[in-house]
């Protein structure tokens, strides 16, 4: 992305949220997607926590990569550096929220530690670098990707609650298999966005 205007940013957003949805087309962040989607409130909470951490970690990892790793020719340490950044950020945010905004901490608290092992966060930081994005593009791509994650997990949780309340699921498919098949149908739905020409 070279010029930032409403059009390009919108195109970028639609692409990251709908067309290349991180969970449904790239399989990143599947663990929380299946793990915390049993009801829609927790799903939204998880989505918000991920959005927060993703935005923050894209800024910090961009800085570390460009200002520390590149000048020192240590690009090969990016995986270690990024995962440490993400893990410490998660810890810091947890401590800060607990002290400063207890209400938000109570809402998001239990999801925060889980984010360290959410591969979508590390994945998006690595692909931002790989795609050679500048600072603003990295940040926007992380935020939009996280919104895509939130959208997917929220829709999924709603479908799942409905289905488990009302459907008579064959015994072998109960639990995880039917969740996977629901995700497959959702993924088919999102494939339709492929037809959008931006």
């Amino acid at each position: 992305m070279q010029e930032y205007n409403i059009g390009t940013i919108l195109a970028f957003a639609i692409n990251a949220i709908l067309i290349e949805n991180i969970v449904l087309t790239q399989f990143m962040g599947c663990c929380p997607f299946f793990g915390v989607s049993k009801n829609s409130d927790t799903a939204l909470g998880m989505g918000m926590a991920v959005t927060f951490i993703m935005g923050l970690s894209s800024i910090v990892t961009y800085g570390i990569y460009q200002l520390v790793l590149v000048p020192l020719k240590l690009e090969y340490l990016e995986t270690i550096a990024f995962i440490l950044v993400i893990a410490s950020l998660v810890q810091l945010v947890e401590m800060a929220l607990k002290k400063l905004v207890p209400a938000l901490y109570n809402a998001l608290g239990i999801y925060l530690p889980l984010i360290t092992t959410n591969c979508a966060v590390l994945g998006i930081c690595l692909t931002n670098i790989q795609n050679g994005y500048d600072f603003l593009s990295s940040f926007l791509s992380s935020i939009f990707t996280a919104i895509g994650f939130t959208l997917a997990i929220w829709i999924f949780s709603i479908v799942r609650t409905r289905m488990e309340e009302t459907c008579d699921i064959p015994k072998a498919f109960q639990g995880f298999p039917i969740a996977l098949i629901t995700a497959a149908l959702l993924s088919f739905g999102f494939m339709g966005f492929n037809g959008l020409t931006l």
Partner: peptide, 11 residues
């Protein structure tokens, strides 16, 4: 090192 085609920037 970069060329624009439409809204995309190709390296």
């Amino acid at each position: 090192k970069e060329i624009n085609i439409g809204s995309a920037k190709i390296k």
